[in-house]
Design a protein around this nucleic acid. Sequence first.
DNA 1: CATGTTATTTATCGAACGATAATTAACATG
DNA 2: CATGTTAATTATCGTTCGATAAATAACATG
Lengths: 240, 240
Amino acid sequence: MPNQGNTTTQMAGSSSTSLAAAEKPASPRRTRNKPEERHKEFVRKAIELFAEVGFEAGTRELAQRLGVTQPLLYRYFPSKDDLIAAVYQEIYVNRWKKEWRDGLIDESRPIRERIIAFYEDYTSTIFTPEWIRIYIFAGLRGVDINRRYAATVEAEILRPITLATRHSFGLGGQEPPTAEEVELFWTLQGGIFYYGVREIVYQFPMPVDRATMIRNAVDTFLTGVGPVLKRLAERENVAG
Amino acid sequence: MPNQGNTTTQMAGSSSTSLAAAEKPASPRRTRNKPEERHKEFVRKAIELFAEVGFEAGTRELAQRLGVTQPLLYRYFPSKDDLIAAVYQEIYVNRWKKEWRDGLIDESRPIRERIIAFYEDYTSTIFTPEWIRIYIFAGLRGVDINRRYAATVEAEILRPITLATRHSFGLGGQEPPTAEEVELFWTLQGGIFYYGVREIVYQFPMPVDRATMIRNAVDTFLTGVGPVLKRLAERENVAG
DNA sequence: CATGTTATTTATCGAACGATAATTAACATG
DNA sequence: CATGTTAATTATCGTTCGATAAATAACATG
């Protein structure tokens, strides 16, 4: 049934003609593409598929969506795990913006403005099904990816925010933020992140739009964090 | 334990003796148990296994851990999905405490105390690999469970907290909390929940203990939420 | 102790999976 | 236009999965 008919095989396209058995789009032989493009194309579609189904998604399903045969995948990725690694790289490394940190430590703007601007841009990057769902899939599958990512968030975002906030309250000097201080900002980070999880993963109806949520959360946090930071700083001075 | 084996079938236990082919613990025939106990036992072990591996965990692996054969599972659960449903029921329905709501609306204690006490007890219930990991697995697999659970959290926890906090600030009356108000408390909830995710799922080293984190997060929140709630209430009064 | 019920096991099916080897055809080069 | 390279396909292997049917043995009852 592979149909080698030299006649009308062309328009096998993708849909409608598929028989009950599925899987084979009935197009024998396709065009020949450049390896780099194929590689990118494969990763892009893999992200799409994994975000939907998870990493248990079959290589046959992926091949079908790409309009190629399943063994072709193994010409570009030695194993499925290598494909998954490429997916991680694309999402969590290539999409990170160095400007986030720069904006946060830019003392020419008020701290509130900086933090709100950061979270608006950051959430516009990560609040997609691809980013969030794959991030969560990754965390359940193994801890490496997420630990590394969390370490980056802490080093590049939360510690700078902590120091900047401390300064804006006229507290402390250059000493590195304590774990307890950083933990405070983790709860802000987590609270905002969980908004995205409810919206995108649990598909909860979200009556409050993202910008409003961020503004209220940051306002609440910045108003309340002053006294707590002060208390922590005093305790630190006594202890140290 | 069970196994009244009249000979040496005893030590079929679990390890070492397993041949290369694996799967069969070499114990032919076991004792006969009461159906209700089996049912409970199966669910209990299924929770354990699913928390580790996810719902893709094989029924053969589960059977092996139970010391029974795989087809026996199908005498107690018509399909794997029914087993999963029983797991959900056990974790997310049976472990819910009505006292949480009662404690939160008990106006004889200060609001700060009530909220901190609630989160300490709540986290002591849900900050286990079983609860958190299965909750997250469930959310990626389908939205029903988590949507239902989130609706319960909102109705039984967050709305009461919102009203109680409003009162403690001398704001508003009996009007139901607005979506924007509730959303504020969702960020607190999410921030605390994400602490558990980092600890249990991502296995991040947590230098700040749970109680301290809760105290700081609630203090920050309660200090900061007053002005924001007030602003929202005023806007509401003008608009309404 | 004989008998009936049913909890449990043995054996097996069909589908789907990741992966490999061998074959075929698209394209670049002379 | 003949030729070599390699992108892409066909065919297939071995494993694992959820699930079912039939055989067997534990226990209750008389």
